[in-house]
Design a protein around this nucleic acid. Structure first.
Lengths: 223, 223
DNA sequence: GTATACAAGATTGTATACGAAGAGTACGGG
DNA sequence: CCCGTACTCTTCGTATACAATCTTGTATAC
């Protein structure tokens, strides 16, 4: 998708994807000032679709907007990270529980394969790749969620995490090991046809544990 | 709020509030076609801010949008109702649990007073009023939630329910009685300083029970 | 030297205008 | 009488233009 998926024939959509991609890949780093006219010129379009795209990103929390001033890329504010992770722990836990009855052996196998890659990845410690695999793993588990609203919230949460490229595992290496183990436990729980409530609790705890590890780390190592 | 709260000095905001209010009060009923130029003329502004307002409402799920066709007010699609209620049960449960430690005796008293009004309201059966009080009651319980993301999701859920004016209690009168009793139980649980997990479970169950009652009713009385 | 007032520049907010896509309708052919 | 096609009409999508607002730099008074 080299040019940021631009086949919608809607300039607004193109602008949205383009800006979002640039935030994700770090071209627009946190605090960067997004000027409508500038982006419009770069994309060769008018400011109107750009403005619409920015507002969408604002609604998703990827940028902050101030009236008559403009938009800036949202940062890695630790408190925002906490909010996002806590929210994600709740909605992802629910999504995983809701989709668990729809997860078949093929899905389990796929997730397990990804987790093995992660385990392997532990050796040469590559946080970005690990984070990517981590998302792949969880995607398998929650993507079957039959409630599109909840699924949408999960996607938003992950989107925000991707934009604030903290990657947690970069800061708390020890957490990566635990994470892989918890993944396997979660898979076994789902395989055994456990109660939805148990799966939800496990999935939520798995994420809060990552958050707690981050908080403990930043508490000990204040920037 | 006679003219739909219009002091923001932003026409986009005014349009948003205005259209949202008209959806809530039924002026724009489900399926109603929202034509940009028409609304713009009615409000005495240009189509640009109106368009922005409509897109915001679309993001919140109050209207559905189709490219090159336009927006229509979202309906009471039972399946959408299910999705919304299920999502709300999860996020409201979490919000209530998170805010429970911050709920003081004054809040409890206020909530209890509202619940008494509801109990009284049972006599002369006034669904719209009952629904309004119901929201007031729960607002006291979740409004202290320290995580603004979660709180925002709760507000969105309630906003959608308000737009699809189904009011449940209109359809399932029996549920109203149970609801009042569960409210009292929930208050006692919070008063007793119960575990957050227990409060969350109770709050979630309270809402799913309403949903289930609705589903049972529509299952028995298919329209 | 510092603080304040003012002006110039930059950027957003809104209006108007035009082009594009879809829905409905009338006409002609089968 | 039914179906397909072309046309018109409505409405959205985007561009351009202008007004409103904020920020910033500078000059002046104290």
């Amino acid at each position: 998708m080299g040019d940021a998926g631009t086949a919608t024939s809607s300039k607004s959509e193109r602008a949205y994807n383009s800006v979002k991609a640039r935030i994700a890949d770090g071209t627009y780093s946190p605090g960067f000032r997004l000027v409508l006219a500038k982006i419009a010129e770069e994309l060769g379009i008018s400011v109107v679709p750009v403005r619409e795209a920015i507002r969408r990103l604002e609604a998703e929390g990827l940028v902050t907007f101030e009236r008559n001033v403009g938009a800036t890329v949202a940062g890695i504010d630790p408190i925002e990270y906490l909010y996002t992770m806590q929210t994600l722990s709740i909605v992802e836990g629910a999504a995983t529980a809701l989709s668990s009855p729809l997860i078949g052996p093929a899905d389990i196998a796929r997730a397990r394969a990804v987790n093995e890659e992660m385990r392997e990845c532990l050796q040469h410690f590559d946080p970005p790749r690990f984070t990517l695999l981590n998302k792949d793993f969880h995607s398998v588990l929650f993507e079957n969620c039959p409630n599109p609203h909840i699924l949408n919230l999960v996607h938003r949460g992950w989107g925000r995490l991707a934009s604030m490229r903290s990657s947690t595992f970069r800061f708390v290496p020890g957490r990566a090991h635990e994470s892989v183990e918890e993944h396997e436990a979660l898979l076994q729980l789902i395989e055994s046809g456990a109660d939805a409530a148990d799966i939800e609790r496990a999935a939520r705890l798995h994420r809060s544990a990552t958050l707690d590890a981050y908080l403990a780390q930043t508490g000990a190592h204040p920037s």
